Simulated scan of single mutants.
Amino acid sequence: MTKQEKVAFVIDTLESIYPEIPIPLEHKDPYTLLIAVLLSAQSTDVKVNQITPLLFEVADNPYDMVKLSVEEIREIIKPVGLSPMKSKGIHGLSKILIEKYNGRVPQTFEGLEELPAVGHKTASVVMAQAFNVPAFPVDTHIHRLMYRWGLSTGKNVKQTEKDAKRLFPKDKWNKLHLQIIWYGRQYSPARGWDLEKDIITKKIGRKSVLKDYRKKNG
């Protein structure tokens, strides 16, 4: 199977499983999405979706957020982890949004990545999901599956993103990155992986990955 045949199989299979795909993080506008994505670093979407309603009940816009102290923000978001860094980032970026962007979230990668605690992945998610700009945010699921499928070297997320953008059509990036995340969670997890249920990897998986799996699982 050539890489292009693998890519076509991935696209067709994911489209048949997930013709409509939900955004995992609950939000109502670009600002609340930005905060939710920032909070999701080294946490789970489930946990973030439990905490954001509590935070947004108090402050769901930068003007209300800066009225809170960093410590008050931290107390609310503590369950998601990394709260000292995240609370400073939320307060700091909210202040910048007011001072530099009239309270609005910038619609450029450059503008987003200049904000405190906002890296390339967070900026990519916001650009894709809030502004519908083609992007391919790479999380642990996408990084794992691109390697399992033999579509990337697996060296680092930067290389995985580069490979994904090179292989998949640009007009499909935004939907595909969500489809792969959901597929990774449901059919090809890091732990408790059942190859028989993982129809994509079983069909196109890297030979060394399939060999290792079968050796471990008899």
Rank of each mutant, 00 (worst) to 15 (best):
M1P: 13
T2V: 06
Q4W: 10
E5G: 10
V7D: 03
V7M: 06
A8H: 13
F9P: 04
D12V: 07
L14Y: 06
E15Y: 12
S16R: 15
I17Y: 11
Y18C: 01
P22D: 01
L25C: 06
L25E: 02
L33P: 04
L34M: 13
I35Y: 03
L38D: 01
L38T: 04
L38P: 00
L39R: 02
Q42G: 05
S43F: 09
N49T: 04
Q50E: 14
I51G: 02
T52P: 00
P53S: 03
L54S: 11
L55V: 07
L55Q: 04
E57L: 05
V58N: 12
D60S: 15
M65Y: 01
M65F: 04
V66Q: 00
K67T: 11
S69E: 13
S69C: 08
V70K: 15
E72T: 05
I73C: 03
I73L: 09
R74D: 14
R74M: 15
R74W: 03
E75N: 10
E75S: 10
E75P: 04
E75A: 14
I76H: 02
V80C: 02
G81Q: 03
G81V: 03
M85Q: 12
S87G: 07
H91P: 06
G92H: 00
I96E: 06
L97K: 09
L97P: 07
E99M: 03
Y101A: 04
N102R: 09
G103F: 10
V105K: 00
V105P: 02
Q107F: 04
F109P: 01
L112K: 01
L112C: 08
P116I: 03
A117P: 05
G119M: 11
V125T: 04
V126M: 04
V126D: 00
M127A: 12
N132R: 07
V133K: 00
F136R: 01
V138W: 05
D139V: 09
I142T: 10
I142W: 07
I142N: 05
H143W: 09
H143A: 11
L145V: 06
L145I: 12
M146L: 14
S152I: 00
S152T: 06
T153C: 02
G154H: 05
V157T: 13
K158M: 12
K158L: 12
K158Q: 02
Q159D: 13
T160K: 06
T160C: 07
E161N: 09
K162Y: 14
K162A: 14
D163V: 10
R166Y: 13
L167V: 11
D171K: 12
K172L: 13
K172R: 14
W173K: 00
N174S: 04
K175S: 14
H177A: 02
Q179M: 15
Q186I: 11
S188N: 08
S188L: 01
P189W: 13
P189A: 10
A190E: 13
W193D: 10
W193L: 15
W193C: 12
D194W: 02
L195S: 11
E196Q: 14
K197R: 15
D198Q: 12
K202Y: 08
I204Y: 05
G205R: 11
R206M: 14
K207C: 01
D212I: 07
R214S: 13
